[in-house]
Computed example of a mutant assay.
Amino acid sequence: MDEFKVTSPITLKNTETKLVIKTAKKELKAFRKQLGDLQNTMYAHNKYAVLVCLQGMDTSGKDSLVREVFKDFNVRGVEVHSFKVPTEQELSHDYLWRHYLVLPERGKFGIFNRTHYENVLVTRVHPEYILNENIPTVNTVDDINDAFWDRRFQQINSFEKHIAENGTLIFKFFLNLSKEEQKHRLLRRLNKQEKQWKFSPGDLKERKLWDDYQNCYEDAINRTSKPHAPWYIIPADDKSTARYLVAKIIYDTLLTYTDIKEPELEDDVKENLALYKRQLRSE
């Protein structure tokens, strides 16, 4: 699965969106069960946390991917957080504060469905949103220049390096959706009554900014794909394939950490296992 990992500069318009793996649904069932079992082992091991970051254009399938990939997890072993418009309290802190608060504990998976990268994507397309952060050096949109974004990318890289060095395994997935497929999915939302609640006229306004978003994603991915926090560009026009690829990448990568195993029983406990069994059976 290394072909999906970003290890050198990429151009999004040259990346695949339309990959179909016919066995994806069947193979996903096996991988998600294995992932759930592995999380139980990681909980006992208590050394690593896993942070899964999902980004993509609207309708790219983030919500359904979370549902399908992690459905066999113990519910206590995985937490999902979606970062939308910052609250008043969140705006009274620096922009990374709310992300630090919900990082996964050791032994658990955390999923960021929309992530700290919103702070260099949405705000870069709409720089006026930055003014709500009340940053001392930013008084007008004119103050949000290239140097500002350089600093913010450096801060994000430092954030990820810090948590990686302290035991968090980071996976960052960009669900790479074509503009044509997004149109079909938006139309399905409008045509299915049970899906219409998901639609907002704002979706169409943001769609007109497609090229701006693609440019920002491309720059963000190229600046922040690091060995300790790599980006994977996942073809997302076929949802089943995208889900399978994400599950397989996570599982295959975690298997390379050969130290992840249940802790050994202490010698005196191990030596007396037969005794403990007899005690219980004799009750």
Rank of each mutant, 00 (worst) to 15 (best):
K5V: 07
T7C: 02
T17E: 12
K18L: 06
V20G: 03
K22C: 03
T23N: 12
A24P: 06
K25H: 12
E27Y: 04
E27D: 15
A30C: 10
A30Q: 13
A30I: 15
A30S: 12
L35M: 09
G36V: 11
L38A: 08
T41D: 10
A44K: 15
H45G: 06
N46G: 07
A49T: 05
V50D: 08
V50W: 05
L51K: 02
L51P: 11
L54C: 02
Q55S: 14
M57Q: 10
M57R: 11
D58Y: 08
T59D: 06
S60K: 07
K62V: 02
S64Y: 08
V66N: 01
D72P: 02
D72W: 09
F73N: 01
F73K: 06
G77V: 14
G77N: 01
G77H: 06
E79I: 08
V80G: 02
S82M: 03
V85I: 13
T87G: 01
T87L: 01
L91W: 02
L91N: 06
D94A: 00
Y95H: 00
Y95P: 00
Y100A: 08
L103S: 02
F109H: 08
F109Q: 06
I111D: 04
I111C: 05
N119V: 02
V120Y: 07
L121N: 00
V122S: 09
V125Q: 04
H126Q: 15
E128D: 13
E133V: 05
N139G: 15
N139E: 13
I144R: 00
I144N: 00
I144Q: 00
N145A: 01
N157P: 03
N157L: 06
F159H: 04
H162Y: 13
I163W: 04
E165M: 10
N166Y: 07
I170V: 15
F171M: 03
F173E: 02
L175I: 07
K179V: 08
K179H: 09
Q182P: 07
K183I: 13
H184S: 13
L187S: 05
L187H: 05
R189K: 11
L190W: 01
K192Q: 15
E194Y: 10
K195I: 05
Q196R: 12
F199Q: 09
G202K: 14
D203E: 13
L204G: 10
K205C: 00
E206S: 13
K208F: 08
D212L: 10
E218Y: 06
A220N: 10
A229M: 03
P230D: 05
Y232W: 13
I233G: 09
I233S: 04
I234G: 11
P235R: 14
P235M: 14
K239T: 11
R243P: 11
L245Q: 03
I249L: 05
I250N: 03
T256Y: 04
T256W: 04
E264N: 14
V269L: 08
K270W: 09
N272W: 12
N272D: 15
L273G: 06
A274K: 12
A274Y: 10
K277V: 13
E283W: 12
